[in-house]
Amino acid sequence: MSDKTLTRMDLSEAVFREVGLSRNESSELVERVLALMSDSLVDGEQVKISSFGTFSVRAKAARVGRNPKTGEEVPIEPRRVLTFRPSHLMKERVAAGNRR
């Protein structure tokens, strides 16, 4: 494991390298991909990327939570959360790549 952190910059660098557009346009395109995915999720849609994984939005009901420090009860409002379910292929590749 190399324990590095990649950012948008690394993704746009990969697009620049693979597709040969300018660095500027590559980074704008990465931004648009993330924005299109986000917009679709905010609309409540599922985003299903074959051989990568599925992002879905789930509605969580209101519940009574507790402040673990004080023991005090706090209401937790109903909310929407995003879950990511990796594809089999991704799970296999991540497991294989990190095997000692």
């Binding site: 494991m1 190399s2 324990d3 590095k4 952190t5 990649l6 950012t7 948008r8 690394d10 993704l11 990969a14 697009v15 693979e18 597709v19 557009l21 590559s26 395109l29 990465v30 991909v33 993330l34 990327i49 051989s51 990568f52 991704m90 590749r93 991540v94 294989a96 790549g97 990190n98």
Partner: peptide
Amino acid sequence: IVNTIFEEITDAMSRGDRVEL
């Protein structure tokens, strides 16, 4: 472009790296 983005993320994770967006 789209395939490269997802490929790059999966590759990073197979190396044990994080991808922070």
